[in-house]
Design a protein around this nucleic acid. Structure first.
Lengths: 117, 117
DNA sequence: GTGTTAGATCGACAGGCATCTATGTAAAAG
DNA sequence: CTTTTACATAGATGCCTGTCGATCTAACAC
């Protein structure tokens, strides 16, 4: 995480030969890399990735009570995954009555998508 | 990881009211979700994401000796990150003489990219 | 041969994470 | 009021991960 991405000046090699050409500078800065890796990390669990997939394929909001039976983990575990996704900014939720409805926020996934392209 | 994504039949609610419409089926199956989340997990560290970024912005292969000074972690730690990326299939390497050259394999990132789109 | 260099691997340690059960909370039902 | 329901939170546990210094290995230089 504590990264300095300025290219260090190439020093002459002792034997005088070069291992490779000077590399290109990275396109992302450290803050961007941290944001993007935070998104990737949130998707780095198969259950969370499937949650996002389900929420995306459903047009609007999905209630937790519909999500839980899709995965064979306990309700608190699913709640934990939803929190991780919420903390990463990938999903958000609203509460109506007893039910919580989750939905995907499109912007963060778009960020990741455009870095990947 | 042990996930059954077939949609459970909706049971009638005790009070007779419905929290939401039946959700759409996920587009990815479990194996796909595991593969995609494996890729995302490998990108879920800022240093690894920057490594990929550097390798991508450089057209060809990049030698480890060029990578190490870009990040303020030790050489073994960088080697560990490169191994993680290699295990995820995101990068590969060739050895020539004393030097190891790493490069991005485009297909896995394309997989992730097309899921995100 | 010896020495050096690039990089991978090993072993240890601290912190993080996925999972569970148990409990808390807030809203609705009776 | 009490009970039930939906979900979140707390606490515990075992595994995984990022980091380091030390060491190993293979290839070159001499």
């Amino acid at each position: 995480m504590p990264v300095d991405l300025t290219l260090a000046p190439k020093e002459k090699r002792a034997a005088g030969d070069v291992c490779c050409e000077p590399i290109a500078l990275p396109d992302v800065d450290v803050a961007q890399a941290e944001q993007l890796s935070k998104l990737a990390k949130a998707l780095g669990d198969p259950i969370r990735l499937q949650i996002v997939d389900v929420l995306r394929s459903h047009a609007g909001e999905v209630c937790v009570c519909e999500l839980v039976p899709l995965f064979d983990v306990s309700q608190p575990t699913l709640s934990h995954h939803l929190r991780k996704l919420r903390e990463a900014g990938i999903v958000d939720s609203v509460k109506r009555g007893l039910w919580s409805y989750y939905f995907v926020k499109p912007e963060p996934l778009k960020e990741l998508n455009s870095w990947l392209s």
